[in-house]
Amino acid sequence: MGSRFFLLLLVMAGLVVAFAPLPVQPIAPLERTFRIEARQFAYSPSEFRVNPGDTVTIQLVSTDVVHGLYIDGYDVSVEADPGQTTALTFVADKAGSFRFRCNVTCGAMHPFMIGKLTVGTNDWLVRSIGLALIAICGFLPLSSFLSNKKSSENR
């Protein structure tokens, strides 16, 4: 009975970690501009961080062939030819970590031309580490419970 309760407790903890909203420190939104250079097959800078609510402008500068920049989750994109800097402005209203990637075929490794935008906290990384910790901490007692159950079934 104790193990059953423990299992329930673990599942509850897991659900909380997986779905509870993360605490947000209120930070006044800013307007931020990033100049991102694109080449075959990388962005520079390839990682940048903003706060939730910021108005973000990305100036995309292509230094070899036509490239694009598409942000997963935000579903916004911009395309730039060499010599023609273009800008993409959006409000970073979704928290978490998002891959941005080239959406204009630019050669062989195009599908892997990837960068990373983090808005506030990378919440799924935090949650997944939390869940992994819960899984490991709860594992020993839980597994003995499982094996007890199994042996009683077999009987």
Partner: peptide, 14 residues
């Protein structure tokens, strides 16, 4: 290498 944001690795692998 493939899904990370590090261009150096991609260059090396390709």
């Amino acid at each position: 290498v493939l899904l990370g944001p590090w261009g150096t690795f991609k260059d090396a692998a390709y």
